[in-house]
Nucleic acid binder design. Structure first.
Lengths: 160, 160
DNA sequence: GGGGTTTGGTTGCATGAAGCAACCATCTCT
DNA sequence: AGAGATGGTTGCTTCATGCAACCAAACCCC
């Protein structure tokens, strides 16, 4: 997003997009949610330019969507974690995920499924467990390989 | 979004963002959902540059998120409507709306509320009626003025 | 029936965000 | 001591966006 603000828009969607509407922002949040915590991991998993990743991480930390924690002091090395504010983007990500799957499906089925940690049920577009019916949050769900992942087994081994 | 594609990303979130991740795209969808159908209405309601709006509408029509219908033949005049694909973005918009409201609240409360047409209940972050519990779609909901709208009565009269 | 208005754009130019590659600094490994 | 890993920063280029002016076809008004 360029100016990244939408002056005069009295809409909370605009407010949300001011913060996470820039290119890559939501994908970085998703990457961290998926377990990528370090600069290099995120960069590699997304293929984002390093300077842009640096700027986005800075902004996401400023916005308190991510939290930066040192895991090594002496060459300062950091990991990035989601705050509650960041975790709360999960329903929006789930909705976009399902929309993307519906209208640009993978040929062999989804490569990843989001399932309820507790019961293993699939997570619906609304972030609800289709098996037990609970309304879930980011912490209640995990990703597992889906049917489309088998065709990509070798690739996965290389790309992590 | 610049290049607007995310080559090599095996993620449906990325697929969705390829289509609706560009700056303004989701806001245009929201504006049309809200009842703005004509070029000028959308332009004025968002404050978007006209050339950019033109490009976005073109792309959203190409992606079959919007449908363009002539309402006048002889000076050709068009209105834009959401397709099912466009309407299906509603859960994502609702999730972003609630996230924006939670973390950048209006001082006097939300200016607009999303309510269930049938029973008037408020719509939750997951697009579920908090009154009757039904899982809703775009067609089941409408916007009504919220508590924060009163403070802006004069402005609203001027700005539409 | 000629001038202004409305509507739905397009064009040209300036600005600023993103992509790419090179560089840097510190520690670790050998 | 030299090579690699990590986590960036810097410079330059390219492309998307913002702004303002322009255009064209009705229509409205007198």
């Amino acid at each position: 997003m360029l100016r990244r603000d939408y002056p005069g828009l009295d809409c909370s969607v605009a407010k949300a997009l001011e913060v996470v509407g820039e290119r890559w922002s939501l994908l970085i949040v998703r990457a961290v949610m998926h377990g990528n915590r370090r600069f290099g991991e995120i960069q590699e998993s997304l293929g984002i330019a390093r300077n842009v990743l640096s700027a986005r991480l800075q902004r996401l930390v400023d916005e308190e969507i991510l939290e930066r924690r040192a895991y090594s002091e002496n060459p300062p090395r950091y990991e990035y974690f989601l705050t509650q504010k960041g975790l709360d983007l999960w329903p929006a990500l789930i909705a976009l995920l399902h929309w993307g799957e519906r209208y640009s499906p993978d040929p062999d089925g989804p490569r990843r499924l989001i399932v309820h940690k507790e019961c293993g049920g699939e997570v619906s577009e609304r972030g609800i467990c289709e098996s037990c019916g609970k309304v879930l949050t980011a912490r209640d769900a995990k990703q597992v390989p889906g049917p489309g992942a088998k065709a990509l087994a070798e690739e996965s081994a290389a790309a992590g």
